[in-house]
């Protein structure tokens, strides 16, 4: 085993995802504690320029036409081969749409423990401790791998991104290689990207948002939120269950698989505050949460809160705004 930290960088549509920089910064810090190097790995086709933005000790760029778009099987094979070859101390993968296809599978194929949903990593006397955020953000679990090597999947936003960008004084060595494993016989084929629908109001452009969650109870209550939004001259946004149920269009979804919003005021009504939702709204200037559960995690990020029933509050607030 080496003392290196292997970091999987992600890119989508020609842009390196922030999670890549976040993990690279943290990975460099950990590599120093382990006495090894932080090696960022990027897979792509003709994407060397993207790889060069990663502020690791060295960057390994794997180039193959089959890696032009994310493909879980191709990525999984290449990473398994690299892990096998280099035996890193720590493998860092994002707990993102891409990383969620990879980390747990790699844990099995490489025979390494996985600690998932990680938002804290520390090296204590050279030993790693990882803190996972589980049970919808209600519980933190600090764990240590039983052996020395392990995989962690890191939550977006857990570590500062700037620490992982190339900057003054750090010019990482960029090594480009061909895929170490054949990728011609994949069962998974990328077909196309499907762009989000357009034409709806853009919730990222609203100074105030009326955002509703499962606490709205049912489709018949949506109009209560719509009336408030209308009085405020804005739109209703929502958590995932509301758009999954078809009560509002997908374009209104805030969070990990939805949009990231930063309004001046974000009204979060009947939203529990799951990590995947927080990912999309924690940057709002002022967050006001209303939830009947006083222990809901949303109150930990909100600036103001109340525990009344949103179905009573919505019409009362609409009245006050109209008055």
């Amino acid at each position: 085993m080496s003392n290196d930290v292997l970091i999987l960088a992600e890119h989508l549509k020609g842009k390196v995802s922030d999670i890549s920089f976040e993990m690279t910064g943290k990975g460099r810090q950990l590599a120093v504690a382990f006495g090894g190097k932080a090696v960022a790995v990027m897979l792509g086709s003709g994407a060397a320029a993207l790889a060069a933005t990663l502020g690791a000790d060295s960057v390994l760029y794997v180039d193959d036409p089959a890696l032009a778009e994310f493909n879980p099987q191709a990525y999984g094979r290449v990473l398994a081969a690299l892990i096998n070859d280099r035996a890193p101390r720590l493998v860092m993968v994002g707990n993102t749409s891409m990383g969620m296809d990879l980390a747990a599978g790699l844990s099995v194929t490489a025979g390494l423990p996985l600690m998932a949903y990680v938002n804290g990593l520390a090296a204590e006397g050279g030993a790693l401790a990882a803190t996972s955020q589980i049970y919808g953000g209600k519980i933190q679990a600090e764990a240590v791998p039983d052996g020395e090597a392990c995989v962690v999947s890191c939550l977006a936003g857990a570590f500062p991104a700037d620490a992982g960008r190339v900057g003054a004084g750090l010019v990482p060595a960029l090594e480009q290689i061909a895929s170490p494993v054949p990728l011609a016989d994949l069962q998974i084929k990328f077909v196309r990207m499907i762009e989000p629908q357009s034409g709806d109001v853009d919730i990222t452009q609203q100074p105030i948002l009326v955002s509703i969650g499962r606490g709205i109870g049912g489709q018949e209550n949506i109009e209560l939120a719509q009336e408030l939004a209308e009085a405020l001259g804005t739109a209703v946004s929502a958590s995932r269950p509301v758009t999954d149920a078809g009560w509002l269009p997908k374009t209104r979804q805030v969070g990990k698989s939805g949009l990231t919003v930063k309004p001046k005021i974000y009204l979060a009504f009947g939203i529990s505050g799951a990590p995947e939702h927080l990912e999309g709204m924690r940057g709002a200037e002022t967050i006001i949460a209303v939830n009947t559960d006083p222990k809901a995690p949303i109150f930990d990020v909100a600036h103001y809160g109340a525990t009344c029933d949103m179905l009573d509050l919505l019409p009362a607030l609409t009245e006050k705004i109209k008055a």
Binding site: V144, G147, D300, Y304, G305, L317
Partner: peptide, 29 residues
Amino acid sequence: GSTVRRMFKPEAAGHAEMWEGGPEEVAEK
């Protein structure tokens, strides 16, 4: 393959300032 040493409820960096009262009072605020 890993062992939990400590499980705890997150110590939030902050907590919302809670407004007491019913829907009318909260709407007012």
